[in-house]
Amino acid sequence: MFTSIKRIVRSGFVGFWRNAFVSFSSIFVMTITLLVVGTVMLGNQLLGTTLEQIQNKVDINVYMVTTASQESVLRLKTSLEALPDVREVTYTSREDALAVFRDRHKNDELTIQALEELEENPLGASLAIRAKDTTHYESINAFLKEQQILEDPSAPVIDRVNFNDNKEAIDKLTAIIDTVERVTYIAMLVLVVASILITFNTIRLAIYTTREEISVMRLVGASNTFIRGPFMLQGVMYGLVSGVLTLLILYPVALWLGPATESFFLLNIFNYFVAEFGRLFAVIVGSGVVLGMISSMLAISRYLRV
């Protein structure tokens, strides 16, 4: 058992070096595929983080009429918080709203002056509602509509809900991100299939050159494992080398793009690359190894019939 493993390993390495050109082209093709896989992974992370950050900024603001009592606003807040879709509700009192307004416009003499002219605080209290998921805003909005209808017309509380302005932006963003993800997945799929075919063909070429050897092996009673082993090992080696090569290429690219992605996508891709290196390594090298093994298995099975 040990001797045959030793022989399979040795013969795998010999085959790898002896067919250097075939090995080189297989590794080249696989590296390109793995680069696509890696790029898609990093790209998804960028898009995902961006989406998450934007989603966190999205909320529904309910503006109250200025005459609404604090009590009735807080009652609304409590009933909103009881909804299963709601993550949190932030209450901004009329005074707070005014303070924020003043602060925001502190360099704007004219507005401040206009504000001073008014005797009363013109701003109403408001509730900022954050849902657990962007798709939940619709139902929260419906709930608020209902509340608005049920209100006592003589003492209204809700002035307006700004859901519809945000809705469009949220929908558009979600659609864009969905499309981008779908396109990248299709591209990845096409490239992976192409790469399996090309790798399969290159490995078949390598096996074709040794078909004499295979027929002699069968003749002298070598088991299929013994025949297949070295080729499988070669496939695994192609995968390993390609995987490591891919990571070596991605490293400087991530380093270079890091600052740019940080300002544009709010995530430094290089930091992510370093922090998640283990996972990236496992996925990229792992898929390389699997790819190589599958290709070898398909290629060799042609010569192992009977």
């Binding site: 045959s4 009673g221 070598a222």
Partner: peptide, 11 residues
């Protein structure tokens, strides 16, 4: 030797 290796004989 190759025929013997394929049969799993020792070195």
């Amino acid at each position: 030797a190759f025929a013997m290796e394929a049969n799993g004989r020792t070195d």
